[in-house]
Design a protein around this nucleic acid. Structure first.
Lengths: 345, 345
DNA sequence: CTGAAAGCGCTTACAG
DNA sequence: CTGAAAGCGCTTACAG
C-alpha cells in the first residue's frame, strides 16, 4: 500500500479497501445511521488507513496556510507593535496566516464562547493567541474541548493552571533595575508601578523590594506608587515624589512610557536627569533611544515573546508536548544616559 | 426572476442567464484567461445578479465573518501601527476579520499571483489591502478577474489607472509646512526627502517648491537632499546642511523619524532648536509629542486612511461604485515647539 | 442493511 | 474563444 501512497484516495478506493460500495462509504462519511455497526467500523478503518479527505476538506487544507487567531488588547503602544512584529515575522517564515479577531477584548465578555470556539473549529483555525487579555475558565474550556490550543502573552493575572502563557522575567528585571541604581550609590529610590493587581507590575515591585532588602535599604512606602503604565502617571507621580520632604534621587518606572512622563516633569521642574535624578524605565521599546536623555531601561524581549507564543500554539496544534505551560523570557537591563550617581548632597 | 429567487443558483442557471455554457461560467469562476473580456463581464454580471456561490464558498460563508487580506510592508514604524490601528478598529466594528498575509512584500515578486489570487477566491476573502507595497498590472489583473477588490494605501508610485488607492494630500502638506516656516521669517529652508522616486516624497518636495516660489524665494539645490525616511538620514543630512557656507535656518524633514535625526544632530552640534534652527516633520505620529522639543509636524490622518481603505474595499466587494479610484485625505500642519523665527543674524 | 443505477454539479479535454 | 461531450467524485432514491 506504500506503493500507491502518492495517489490521492477517493471514495471508491476506500470502498474497495473496505470491501463495500461507494454509497456505503458515503453514508458513513455523512453520519447516516443505515449502516451496520461492523461495516461502519471496517469503513472507518479504511478511511483512516488511506487518509481519505473529502473534496471540501482537501480544498480547505490546500487552500492555504494554517491560520491562527489573534486577540489584541488595544493596538496603540510600541509594546503592541513589538509583540505583533515578532508574531508576524515568525508567521511569515512558517507560512502561517494571522487572523486579527473581530472579537476585541471589550467584546470578549458578552461573546458566546461556545459559538466562537465552534466557529474557529469549523474554519479550521489552528490556535488562538491572546495578548494581555485573558479568558475565563469556561471560555478556555470551550476551546480545549474542540482541540484548539490557546496561548496568552503577558497575562494580567498570575498563571492559572491549564493556561499556557508566555511572559518575561519581571521580578528579575525589577531587581536588576534597582540594583543598578543602588550600585550607582542611590539609597532613596522610588517605584512607579502599573495598574493595581497587574501581575507583571507586582513582580517588578517585588524585584525592587528584594534588591532594597538585599542591600539593607529600608523600604519607604511613600516611595511606592502604583496606578498605570501611562505617561500622565509618570508626570503626576514625579510631581508627588519630588514634593516629598526627602525626595528620591532615582525613580524606577514600571514602563518606558511612564518614564517619559518622569523625564517631562523633571524637565518642567528644572531637575536635571541624570545629574540630579536618575530614571529607569521598563520595556526597552524604541522610545528609550529617542528620548533626551536616552533612557536606561529593562528590555523585555517583546518580539521573542510574540514568536515564542506562536511557536507554542503551533506545537500544541501538532500534538507536541510543551516543556512548561508558562515560560518567562529573560529581561535585560540596558544602561543608557538617564542614570548616574546621585548628587553628593 | 424574483419568483425563483429562493432557489439556490447553480452554475447552469448562471450560464442560462448569461447566455453561455456551463464550462464558460466555470472558467470565469476559476480565473482562466481563455474567456473574452466581454463574455467575462456578462458572466460576472449574471453571477452577481443571482448571487452565485460555489459549494466551497457556501460552506465557508456559513462559517463566520467576512475576511479581508492585508499585506503589510514591514511592521516597524509608528506609521504602520497607526494605519493598522485604523483598519483593525473599523474591522472590529464591522465584524470583519483581517488576515495578515503570509505573503510579505519581499515574497511578493516570486509569488505565483494566479495561484495566490485563486487561493483568496477559494477562501472567500472579500478583498485585499496593501500598505505602501504595490502589485504589478499582471498581479492586479489576477485579482480583478476573480472579482477580488484591491486597495492600496499610500502607493509608492503615482496612481495608475485601474488601481484603487488611498493617500494623503502630500503636496498640500509640504506647502503648508514650508509656508509656516516662511511666515516665521525663514528664507533659508532645506528639505530632507524620502527615498528617490517615492511618489509621496516627490509630492511633498513640490509642495515645498511651490511655497518657495509663491513667496519669491529662490530655490537652492544644495538645500534639497533625498534618501530615505529613516532617522540616520536625518543625522547625516543635517550634518551636510549645517556644514554649508550658508546653512539653512530651518529644515523640513520628509518624516517624523527623519526629523528626530535632525534634532539629534543639532543637539550634538550644540545648535539649539528652535532658537537657532527650526525643524518640521511629516506624519504626525506620537513621537512628535515625545521629542524634545515637541515636534512641529504635518499630520497625516493615518488611522482614517486605514479605515477609508477598508471601507472602499468592502464597498467594492458589495458591488457599490466608488466616488473616485484615488482619494487623498487632508494633512494638517500641527505647530508645536520645534519652530520659531530665525535668529536675527 | 446493501449496492446497482441514476443523478448532481462542476471540470476537463478538445474540436472547431 | 466557445461549448458539446465525456468525465469526476460524491449523493440520492429505491429495489431487494
Amino acid at each position: 500500500m506504500a506503493l500507491n501512497a502518492q495517489k490521492k484516495p477517493i471514495l471508491a478506493s476506500v470502498a474497495a479497501l473496505a470491501g463495500v460500495s461507494s454509497p456505503t462509504v458515503s453514508k458513513v462519511l455523512n453520519g447516516r445511521d443505515d449502516v451496520a455497526a461492523a461495516t461502519r467500523v471496517r469503513v472507518q478503518r479504511a478511511l483512516e488507513e488511506l487518509g481519505y479527505e473529502s473534496p471540501v476538506q482537501r480544498r480547505m487544507r490546500s487552500q492555504g496556510p494554517d491560520m491562527v487567531d489573534l486577540v489584541f488588547d488595544g493596538l496603540n503602544s510600541s509594546y503592541s507593535l513589538e509583540v505583533l512584529h515578532g508574531i508576524v515575522e515568525y508567521a511569515a517564515a512558517e507560512e502561517i496566516e494571522i487572523v486579527l479577531s473581530s472579537i476585541t477584548p471589550a467584546k470578549l465578555r458578552n461573546t458566546d464562547h461556545e459559538q466562537w470556539a465552534q466557529r474557529l473549529a469549523d474554519a479550521g483555525r489552528k490556535g488562538l493567541l491572546l495578548v494581555t487579555s485573558e479568558l475565563t475558565p469556561a471560555q478556555l474550556k470551550a476551546f480545549e474541548r474542540r482541540g484548539i490550543p490557546v496561548v496568552v502573552i503577558d497575562p494580567l493575572n498570575p498563571p492559572r493552571s491549564g493556561l499556557v502563557s508566555v511572559g518575561a522575567t519581571n521580578w528579575a528585571g525589577g531587581k536588576a533595575a534597582t540594583e543598578h541604581l543602588i550600585s550607582l550609590g542611590h539609597r532613596r529610590i522610588a517605584f512607579l508601578g502599573g495598574p493595581e493587581g497587574a501581575e507583571c507590575s507586582i513582580a517588578r515591585l517585588h524585584g525592587y523590594l528584594a534588591a532594597l532588602m538585599a542591600n539593607g535599604i529600608p523600604v519607604n512606602n511613600g516611595y511606592i506608587l502604583s496606578a498605570s503604565f501611562r505617561r500622565d502617571f509618570g508626570v503626576r507621580g514625579t510631581r508627588t515624589l519630588l514634593a516629598l520632604e526627602a525626595p528620591p534621587t532615582a525613580i524606577f518606572a514600571g514602563s518606558d512610557t511612564t518614564a517619559l512622563g518622569v523625564l517631562e516633569e523633571a524637565r518642567n521642574q528644572g531637575v536635571r536627569v541624570p545629574e540630579q535624578l536618575s530614571v529607569v524605565g521598563f520595556d526597552g521599546t524604541d522610545i528609550t533611544e529617542q528620548s533626551v536623555p536616552r533612557l536606561t531601561s529593562v528590555a523585555q524581549p517583546l518580539q521573542e515573546m510574540g514568536r515564542a507564543a506562536l511557536r507554542s500554539v503551533l506545537r500544541m496544534a501538532h500534538g507536541e508536548e510543551l516543556d512548561s505551560p508558562h515560560v518567562e523570557l529573560a529581561t535585560q537591563l540596558v544602561v543608557r544616559d538617564s542614570t548616574a550617581p546621585p548628587p553628593s548632597s
